[in-house]
Simulated assay, not measured.
Amino acid sequence: MKILEFLKNKKGAMGIGTLIVFIAMVLVAAVAASVLINTSGFLQQKASATGKQSTEQVASGIQVLQVMGMHNTSNINKTVIYISPNAGSAPIDLSQAVVMVSDGSTKLVAKYNISNANTTDTQIKDGGSVFDSGVWGNISSTEFGIIVVQDADGSCTAKTPVINKGDIVAIALNTTGLKMGPRSDITGTIQPEFGAPGVISFTTPATYINGSRVIQLQ
């Protein structure tokens, strides 16, 4: 009888051990599943954010429509770059854009001065010449002005110079410090906050005619 009682007690001890191991395995599996679920959710959010940013980077951007300049028979001191958003582009905040232009030896880097409201002209869209705009007297060689040519929804203002679908603005640059005489190779970009930059690349005319001060460069 004592032997049978001993064996019964032994079987009970083995059953409790197995139960403990089984519960431990369930707990480990639950923890592992929780970690995997959290990781997959985090990766999904990162992938979604990365996809959105990649789409904005690829689809958005600035296109250069035309580049005009005004010379003084020896150098182009005023340069106007007509730009518009790319097709399908998200709205672009020009206050975060950087304009870089080089003549091969000197590089001009200009940013928008949001604290100076006189660097934006919203009246030119009603007619007039961009070279007669009042922004020219308010921009230095390290700043660019904005002359609104077409803005149906009024999104481009001095405090919020944002361009979107259908908008056309002219970037006014004071290029007095650059060597833009006859036969000069000029390169540069207009780099927005995100998206593709607008490319500037042209060669100035072989000679400057006194009776034709405004010339098309690109």
Rank of each mutant, 00 (worst) to 15 (best):
L4D: 15
F6G: 09
N9E: 11
K10N: 03
K11F: 14
I16G: 00
T18Q: 09
F22A: 13
M25E: 02
A29W: 00
A30R: 07
A30H: 06
S34A: 11
T39C: 01
S40R: 09
G41Y: 04
Q44C: 10
Q44N: 15
K46M: 07
Q57P: 02
Q57D: 12
A59D: 14
G61I: 09
I62W: 00
L65C: 01
Q66Y: 08
M68F: 11
G69M: 03
M70K: 15
S74W: 08
N77V: 10
T79V: 14
T79E: 10
S84R: 15
A87L: 10
G88F: 05
G88I: 04
A90T: 13
A90L: 13
P91T: 06
I92L: 14
D93G: 08
S95P: 01
S95E: 02
Q96M: 12
V98S: 13
V101N: 01
D103H: 05
S105H: 15
K107C: 07
L108G: 05
Y112H: 01
Y112S: 04
N113L: 04
N113Y: 04
N116Q: 12
A117K: 11
D126K: 07
G127H: 12
G127S: 13
G127L: 14
G128N: 09
V130G: 07
V130R: 01
F131L: 04
D132L: 05
S133A: 08
W136H: 08
S140K: 13
S140F: 09
S141R: 03
T142I: 15
T142G: 14
F144A: 03
G145D: 04
V148Y: 00
V149M: 08
V149I: 14
Q150H: 02
A152S: 15
D153Q: 08
C156V: 03
T157Q: 03
A158Y: 01
A158R: 03
A158G: 05
K159S: 11
T160P: 03
T160W: 02
P161F: 07
V162G: 01
I163W: 01
G166S: 12
G166C: 06
I168Y: 04
I168D: 02
V169P: 06
N174R: 04
T175G: 09
K179V: 15
G181V: 06
R183H: 14
S184H: 11
I186W: 01
T187G: 10
T189C: 11
T189D: 13
I190Y: 09
F194R: 12
G195R: 05
A196D: 13
P197Y: 06
G198L: 11
A206C: 07
